[in-house]
Design a protein around this nucleic acid. Structure first.
Lengths: 147, 147
DNA sequence: ACCAATCATATTGTGCACAATCTATTTGTG
DNA sequence: CACAAATAGATTGTGCACAATATGATTGGT
């Protein structure tokens, strides 16, 4: 037999990971569409809401594992929608500081129920969610360490 | 305090899932670039290699959780690269049957080591990989069931 | 046999991801 | 201080994802 067994679909871990990520983010996206946000725009706002003050593009990228090639257009769209403000850091003109506008801050309450609604119906139990989170964090550390 | 605690970045499960999926598929993509495949093209070939005969676009989509909007251009690129052949099903002209060419079949041996190389260095232990796979399969079932 | 509903795939348009590259600024070293 | 190296972000080009829609084939009910 010539088929490499490690290439069987059933042997893959990457494919379920890829499919599950798309499946749950699609669910988030459906709910977020009501406030006009995409999933990447939403997680960008999460990072900004979480922070005490403005974040640089690089700091947002570190939290979301995204680079400026992805973030710059996302931030431009958030800016033109009135959700964030961007300006060069006077102390270091290479940097761009990003922070939510008042309107962007108000958006937070309107999406407060999105995670619960997105996960409802998946049947994932709380203890399984905790275990899944632990394994994913471990994987992310491993990926970063050997990048 | 007005911040909804369920929106804290640290409380999210979706974001690590999204980031981990991009992280590992990016690693696959780097290795696959040597044979000229992208990750979606690779998993499409996995589905075809796994099958006994030709698969319809819909059957590939069911295995990969992708629709024709994504698969049609992927299949066109695989076809023009000489990896697959496509033709309408004579028994039902709505369907398109896809199968690897001889050259597409040969590609299988050249990517046999990609999964092992991609996961090497992530530090994920085998038993953790098994548990992760179980949780992701469970999540995929839940997502499909409540689609 | 008709024909409305359904089904399979393709097409269109928007928005990511990401590698590669570019530009402008800052930093480190002599 | 000069200036090469490093850094931050923006730009460019390719290829997904996916919703919405279009096209054409098939099926089921009368």
């Amino acid at each position: 037999m010539t088929a490499p067994p490690q290439l069987a679909l059933s042997a893959q871990l990457c494919l379920p990971l890829y499919a599950a990520a798309r499946g749950i983010t699609r669910r988030y996206a459906e709910l977020l569409a009501e406030v006009g946000l995409t999933y990447p725009q939403y997680v960008t706002m999460l990072a900004l809401w979480d922070a005490d003050g403005p974040l640089t593009v690089g700091e947002i990228g570190a939290r979301l594992h995204l680079d400026s090639g992805t973030l710059t257009p996302v931030l431009k769209r958030l800016e033109s929608a009135g959700h964030v403000a961007r300006h060069r850091d006077a102390a270091d003109e290479r940097r761009v500081l990003v922070e939510p506008t008042a309107e962007g801050t108000r958006l937070r309450d309107r999406v407060a129920d999105v995670p619960e609604q997105a996960w409802r119906g998946t049947g994932l139990r709380v203890e399984d969610a905790v275990e899944l989170r632990r394994l994913l964090d471990q994987l992310l550390v491993g990926l970063d360490a050997s990048a």
